[in-house]
Design a protein around this nucleic acid. Structure first.
Lengths: 125, 125
DNA sequence: TATGTTAACAACCATCTAGTTGATAAAGCG
DNA sequence: CGCTTTATCAACTAGATGGTTGTTAACATA
């Protein structure tokens, strides 16, 4: 997978979740597949509007569609959700580790030099 | 916290991460605070452009800004990232559990009735 | 005070998005 | 064959986004 391709995938996936309608669709699909009309029912928008939302989710790789007669059931792809949490957690954990190291540094430094804790704006460089 | 307020926060947070420039900014900030000019350096856009990206991240609650003389160091908020993974993981785990239950159901049903595995399009309702 | 640095603000523009209406396709049913 | 259901495609509008340039504010330093 190309680097820009992976970037593009992340772009679309995060963008897809940046909408309350699509998040409610994802929440609904976590409990099982559903058709477009079923998904549109709780909302005040047309089925065409919901269909476009599903296209957004599909192009982001978050859902897939199968075929049963004239219905097109939508399925949630749990693995795609996992790649998002992996991206976030990577940097979240780095930040938390850094914070713990900084905290420990300030704590030990405070024993001999109280002024060291006055400026917490340290660069990592 | 109001329900629509939390929705709005999620909107902005996911939207903020739906841009490769902002994700690189987040990645950089995971290693420590940085100023706007430092953050703008790796990109081909103006510092004003980067400043707008940081405003987006700030309004999403993902970063905060402090003040050191005329510099405004930007800090990553790891806790805000965690709320995003919590939202995703909630529905991801529901979907995975459902999938495991369905898989177990089909496996046991296949012992007595092989036709039960022919249509995987089950609704949860 | 004058000068340079850092960063925000304002206005503007091109593009994209979310929703609509209208028409069309595909499948099942009378 | 007609009719209904389900869902997509096409075209359009209002509003948001990402970028720019130009200007201004805040601060340090000479």
């Amino acid at each position: 997978m190309d680097a820009t391709e992976a970037d593009d995938r992340l772009d679309r996936a995060f963008m897809a979740l940046a909408d309350p309608v699509r998040r409610r669709i994802v929440a609904r699909l976590s409990r099982g597949p559903a058709t477009v009309t079923e998904l549109a029912e709780p909302f005040d928008i047309t089925t065409q509007g919901v269909s476009k939302h599903i296209q957004v989710l599909e192009s982001a790789g978050l859902v897939t569609r199968s075929r049963v007669a004239q219905r097109r059931p939508v399925h949630l792809d749990a693995a795609a959700l996992e790649t998002l949490t992996e991206w976030i957690d990577r940097y979240r954990l780095i930040a938390e580790q850094r914070f713990r190291r900084l905290d420990a540094l300030l704590t030990t430094a405070a024993d001999g030099d109280a002024a060291a804790a006055s400026d917490p704006e340290q660069r990592s460089s």
